[in-house]
Computed example of a mutant assay.
Amino acid sequence: MPVQNAYNAYKQNSVTTASPGELTLMLYNGCLKFLTQSKKAIEKKNYEQKNMYIQKSQAIIAELMTTLNMDLEVSKNMMALYEYMYARLSEANMKMDVAIVEEVEGLVTEFRDTWKQVIQINRKQQFASGDSV
């Protein structure tokens, strides 16, 4: 039990000390985790778990939507893709369709990988300019 308490404290601390960019990365990773679990639930024909995991994925996508700065053109394009992913997950939930979940998983993976690169570039620029993190 003490190990689990230490792990939970570590997880909580990692969230509370993360930068906004790192939090976004955590959201993408969480979404991917729930999409993987939803595929497994579909394959096992576990309707309750499938629904729960797809809804958790949709909640993360909805949270990502709220973080967009709609003054930027790129945000408008991202919003359209987020809306598409959200709608496709609703369809996957109704149809029990692993292929649709995999389609969304591919899009989320691309977003996550791109975001990870942005974080790395920003860190390099901060260190090159002498700013501390």
Rank of each mutant, 00 (worst) to 15 (best):
M1S: 14
P2V: 10
V3D: 09
Q4H: 09
A6H: 07
Y7T: 13
Y10F: 10
Q12G: 05
T17W: 14
T17Q: 10
G21F: 05
E22L: 09
L23H: 11
T24W: 07
L25R: 07
L25V: 05
Y28S: 08
Y28E: 02
N29D: 15
K33E: 09
K33C: 04
K33F: 11
K33N: 15
F34R: 15
L35Y: 11
Q37L: 11
K39F: 14
K40F: 10
K40I: 10
I42A: 14
K44V: 09
K44F: 07
Q49L: 08
K50F: 06
Y53D: 07
I54R: 12
I54E: 01
Q58Y: 05
I61M: 01
I61W: 06
A62S: 07
E63G: 08
E63K: 02
L64Q: 14
T67G: 15
N69Q: 10
M70I: 15
L72E: 12
V74H: 10
K76I: 02
K76P: 03
N77T: 05
M78G: 14
M78Q: 08
M79V: 06
A80L: 11
L81P: 09
L81F: 07
E83A: 13
Y84C: 06
M85C: 06
N93L: 03
M96P: 03
M96S: 09
D97R: 00
I100P: 10
V101G: 02
T109R: 14
T109M: 12
E110N: 14
F111C: 04
D113W: 03
W115M: 08
W115I: 03
K116E: 00
Q120P: 00
N122T: 01
N122R: 11
Q126F: 00
A128N: 14
S129D: 15
S129T: 05
V133W: 04
V133N: 09
